[in-house]
Design a protein around this nucleic acid. Structure first.
Lengths: 287, 287
DNA sequence: AATCGGAGTATCGCTATGCGATACAGTCGT
DNA sequence: ACGACTGTATCGCATAGCGATACTCCGATT
């Protein structure tokens, strides 16, 4: 079940309440065994509807009502009503080939709202376009979300693959250059927490997974002001990343420049682009 | 209130039901005055939650609970609970400067699902990348949604503006090249219906709004196999568009190539790029 | 400092609302 | 002709969500 405590990532403080009114009637288990009942408490129609939509995160094909039902654990009737409603609203549609339900176009309207209203994205986009013009390689903006980085803006180079054009795509913080740049701006405890909580699974043979090696990498990054990642998530790819900070000097996002090792040596790549990258990151961070 | 009848855009047939179970107890007003009570029927928690999220479509700043309440017409308490839930789930967050609520990062996860699972997007993206390589100008994919086209994939050229990098952004069908290409593939009645239902407001001084002129334009487009739009939505911009068809030969999307009139004459632009555009559109339509 | 309006949060009773069970209706494949 | 799938419809029950109300902060205005 998807439930996140309302922690303000900037301040690190807890926000909001744990006990909305509709929880009152429940058997109010003592606060000690905090985990389990929070989840149980939070079963309500909005969350259920969003669970239905979220089921597609794990799946890459159209789904039938039955499948949604078993995947979400919701009853068949219930799923039918929820899907009906979401369909009426345009958040779910039938697959064009009529093989089941898929997420609907209207979801894009909401992602646009996010992008339009996110100050980092708005601030960064023109600067990234300029950076792109200068480097002529792929340039990305990704937003930090605990253990992952979510791509919010992508400016492609000539030669690209499918997933590298999609926004919303997310990668683990621990194994990308932007992630290292962010970790290098955090306190040691916080960075450690993220590293240890991450499921450090190698994506390519070169992916760093060893805690010590990662900490060393982060130390280097902190000194250099940017991170260099070689084939960490994609074979043959070199990426450099720098962190975007908010007014409180906390990292909130990262920008990347990524290129191909068949065209660049790591040294040339960083020598050429790192200064521009760091400069762009500074500008976005509004000094 | 956002409620769309479940019409399959491909077949044009009505799908689904008008009367989910929870409507039964209502005073069942006679079907004559169809409009109003459909709305009234559809008040339920999912729709309410989505209304809250949708409020941001009209707004370009963080909102307070009160504002959301008055804009949605939902009660203050209700809005507080809905926002609380959506916040717990990550679909709404506080503005970084703490001036109100804004759409949350998690919305991007869903737009990714849409993109990943949409066969047109998946089919088109590699072909668009190739097209982009050949033309070195902006290339877009937009998906048809009744009166509008929604950008689903955008490959920028050197010189771009902010909105032209955002996916989810939508433009009216009646005044863009891709829209004309789509209209040219529809039956006369259907195209007329779209034109007349559109709020044909000029975006630039050059925007065509006259029904006759538009029909003529569509006729030209049908013959040429692609559409040319000069400064229709952006001063100084030339765009050519072609329709993507599904297996039933119905248009479902469009692709654009767009460039600057300061660099191209319309003749050169179309001569150079139209064949490539049309070829790409054919390939995507899986002929 | 006293008052105000506007932020967000909490409580509680009522009943409309959403759930599950069940049954129905098409459409495949064998 | 059958069973195993799709998706849809109906209805009783009680729980989940609503509105009204009251509360706590905070900063602006007087």
């Amino acid at each position: 079940m998807v439930f996140q405590p309302l922690v303000n990532r900037r301040t690190g403080l807890f926000e909001g309440t744990m006990s909305p009114n509709y929880l009152r009637s429940l058997p109010r288990t003592p606060p000690e065994n905090g985990e389990t009942e929070k989840d149980a408490l939070f079963v309500q129609s909005i969350a259920r509807a969003m669970d239905v939509l979220s089921i597609f995160h794990q799946i890459d094909r159209p789904l039938s009502l039955q499948e949604i039902s078993s995947l979400t654990g919701l009853g068949r009737s219930n799923v039918q009503r929820i899907v009906f409603t979401l369909r009426s609203l345009g958040y779910i549609t039938r697959d064009p080939d009529d093989r089941g339900y898929v997420p609907g176009l209207r979801l894009l309207d909401h992602s646009l709202d996010f992008l339009r209203l996110n100050p980092v994205v708005v601030k960064a986009t023109p600067i990234l376009l300029e950076l792109r013009r200068a480097v002529r390689e792929r340039v990305d903006l990704s937003i930090w979300d605990d253990l992952r980085l979510v791509y919010a803006s992508r400016l492609q180079s000539k030669r690209e693959i499918l997933t590298s054009t999609f926004i919303g795509y997310s990668v683990p913080v621990f194994c990308v250059s932007g992630g290292w740049a962010i970790l290098s701006q955090l306190g040691e405890d916080e960075a450690d927490s993220i590293l240890t909580r991450s499921r450090r699974k190698a994506v390519t043979p070169k992916t760093l997974t060893d805690l010590g090696a990662l900490k060393e990498k982060i130390r280097e990054t902190r000194e250099a002001g940017y991170a260099t990642a070689l084939e960490q998530v994609l074979p043959g790819e070199i990426a450099i990343g720098a962190a975007i900070l908010d007014q409180a000097q906390r990292p909130v996002a990262a920008i990347h420049v990524a290129g191909s090792l068949s065209e660049w040596t790591p040294e040339d790549f960083t020598r050429q682009f790192a200064p521009l990258l760091v400069q762009a990151a500074r500008t976005i961070s509004r000094g």
